[in-house]
Design a protein around this nucleic acid. Sequence first.
DNA 1: CATGTCACG
DNA 2: ACGTACGTGACATGA
Length: 538
Amino acid sequence: MQQLDRDHALTLLKPYLEDRLRIKAGHDLKATAHVLANVGINLQPIKADVHLASYVLNSVTSRHALEDIARHYLALETPPIALESLTGKGRSKLTKVTLAPSEILNYAAERADLILRASLFLEHELAADARLEGIYRLFELPLVNVLRAMEQNGIALDKIALARQSDELGTQLNKLELKAHELAGEAFNLGSPKQLQAILYEKLGLPMLKKTKTGQPSTAEPVLAELAEDYELPRVILEQRSLAKLKSTYTDKLPLQVNSGSGRIHSTFQQAVAATGRLSSTDPNLQNIPIRTNEGRRVRQAFVSAPETLLLAADYSQVELRIMAHLSQDPGLLKAFSSAQDVHRATAADVFSVALDQVTADQRRSAKAINFGLIYGMSAFGLANQIGVSRGEAGEYIERYFEKYPGVRAYMDETQALADEKGYVETLFGRRLYLPDIHAGNGMLRKAAQRTAINAPMQGTAADIIKRAMIDIQNWLNEGSIDARMLLQVHDELVFEVSERDLPLLADGVRFRMVSAAALDVPLVVDIGTGKNWDEAH
DNA sequence: CATGTCACG
DNA sequence: ACGTACGTGACATGA
């Protein structure tokens, strides 16, 4: 078989791969586009991706590998060639680039065939529902290049600051470990729930407050926090655990993820994972960088802007509650948002029957838990647990809430009924989430599906809205008049890097496009912060 | 590879 | 009577 020279082949392919008029179908074209970008080819247009089509058709199905799509949608007589059959697996596995072209030929040809056939079939399926097809064509496909650019941009990291913090954490952890061994009366591995459980509940005889789902006594944070009120060891363990988490997941590991070429961290945004339509972030996950504790915020401070630039963080304020107001059309909730009230305070005033300016900090905290609970499909038990009151009292709060906001109860009831009748729920823009357990005989599974039915339209609509804003903002940035780059998305927040000169322009343009991303019956509000690091920008 | 835990929205 | 908040990803342990 004659083999073309690699560079010669790329030269021949480039005009075709960059021709906007020739539609290319693929599987996970974001990954393909990265590979091609590395050899100087700008893949376009991105108008057919079976990975995304499969996800839009059924986001609950967890895998959308080409093999899964082929098996599910095409009636294959023999299974497709597995890459592993060529590369082997485990430690000695080869990579695709080390395979000889002749070895990979049949595999590649078969994938090309499967992609084309699957794409035609999936597009036909999507055509059955105009709104679902809209999610594919107007949200997911245009987002591919936005995410590709973000992944390519990466974000700068202050490795020196993290190394210093790692050292300090190491010292503190040693002390805490010694202290814990002393209190336990023996040495043990603090990282082992099994050993800790034996110490706490068998050796020291502390009260067992909760079990894990496999029946083991739990040593999870809420349990230890309660025990810490009466005993010292759980208190030490809690502190050790939180610091060990910071060290092992963040201060030790993040510096290893800095790319030597760019000097920056390049996460991957997964577009076909979350059932609700959210993105997720992997390798590393930059959507769970600490923020809630002081020591954690030091990690966030290590995410910095390049010289002469600043980071800008823009986040939607209470977007899911605003969506609930819009979807439910409850007059009281609509009014609270339209008159720009502090919504948790307004809820507290209504639930506890006090004037707005008489709401205590405690009442506001409870109201906030109620509002979160509504979004999560709460029960009286869950709320009681969260705010530390009896189940009965929590039940009364919920009852009072629904008296004041009857539209919300009606909306929840309608959503449940719709989920029951159709077996799925939808976002405002028509993204669909199937609920396979909505008729389950197992009551626990069924109730979980019912809570998902309540939550998914709100979480999913929020995901749709920010995706639309990202596409709009990236199109604007692509015009080239502003020196700024989109770096991260964290569900209701976007992070940019911008030259100091263009900061005001970027802030205005980002805010305008984020608040305009959906026309709800309540305003969308965006808070913006800036600084030399991600913590300051918050 | 499953389990428990914990970081985030 | 029974068990409970929604959605993710990464790490350490231990079979």
